[in-house]
């Protein structure tokens, strides 16, 4: 214990904490089949059904379009469940309290969860890309593959914020129900399963209130398949949405901190 006074905590130690926290999070998620499998399987399955099997043969536009729409659907899952259910469970099981008592920068915990959501997003996007290119005839300029992947991976952050706001306000069981109630209807109403152009006008108007619609349009604009609405509007919406979610999350956090 004497050396404690001599050794100083350095930024390297802090960096190590961040990385180890993310690594630990990675392994616990990978080993949890109830999270990893559906997160990867559902978007893959939907893409195969709607994008590849339903699409007209010889026409690659459906397979390409749905890289954007099901890509958006896919990356929302790990972000919403990882944060929404993950944080609520950690809180309920007293794990969050253990982390708070430990000399751990609070951001390290959030960083680990966000890194995990983004890593899963990347894996989902890559699976869809491989399927789309191999079986759907999707062919994009190399820059567009990259741009779409980066858009979707970074695009998971607003949904991390939404998940966090839910996870800090409700219990473990309730959070799973609430996240599902947000995730699935919002995906449909944002035109991620069926293009909005096939839906009644009022549903097309309603879609504008959902963040999934806005990220979907940004993703589709990379593919030049968006509905022609303004790119900047989507970006501003997502930024404001993220800030509002973080504001709600901060309220939940303040409430939790004082047990």
């Amino acid at each position: 214990m004497n050396t404690a006074a001599i050794k100083q905590w350095s930024w390297r130690d802090t960096l190590g904490v961040y990385l180890r926290e993310a690594e630990f999070q990675f392994w616990s998620v990978v080993r949890m089949p109830g999270f990893a499998l559906p997160s990867l399987l559902f978007p893959t399955m939907f893409y195969v059904f709607f994008g590849l099997l339903f699409g007209k043969s010889g026409d690659s536009s459906t397979a390409t379009y749905m890289l954007g729409s099901f890509g958006t659907f896919g990356i929302m899952g790990p972000a919403l469940f990882g944060f929404g259910v993950g944080v609520a469970m950690d809180r309920e099981r007293g794990i969050l309290a253990l982390k708070r008592v430990a000399p751990l920068p609070p951001m390290a915990y959030l960083f680990a969860k966000a890194a995990m959501a983004m890593l899963f997003a990347l894996v989902i996007v890559l699976i869809l890309f491989v399927l789309g290119a191999l079986f759907g005839g999707a062919a994009l300029p190399r820059a567009e593959w990259w741009l779409l992947a980066i858009t979707l991976v970074i695009g998971s952050l607003p949904f991390c914020a939404l998940g966090l706001a839910v996870g800090l306000h409700v219990g473990g069981q309730a959070s799973a129900a609430i996240i599902n109630l947000i995730y699935l209807p919002m995906s449909f109403l944002s035109g991620l399963w069926v293009p909005l152009s096939l839906m009644p006008h009022w549903l097309q108007e309603l879609a504008r209130i959902f963040p999934a619609y806005h990220l979907g349009e940004i993703a589709l604009s990379v593919l030049h398949m968006d509905d022609g609405s303004r790119f900047l509007t989507h970006l501003i919406y997502l930024a404001v949405f993220t800030v509002v979610c973080l504001w709600f999350a901060a309220g939940g956090w303040r409430r939790i901190q004082d047990r």
């Binding site: 905590w9 392994w27 616990s28 080993r31 949890m32 007293g94 008592v101 000399p103």
Partner: peptide, 17 residues
């Protein structure tokens, strides 16, 4: 907090770690 350690009541460790 770097100088303390704590065993809290009711913490449920779980997971596959």
């Amino acid at each position: 907090r770097r100088r303390i350690g704590a065993m809290l009541q009711g913490a449920q460790l779980g997971g596959h770690a």
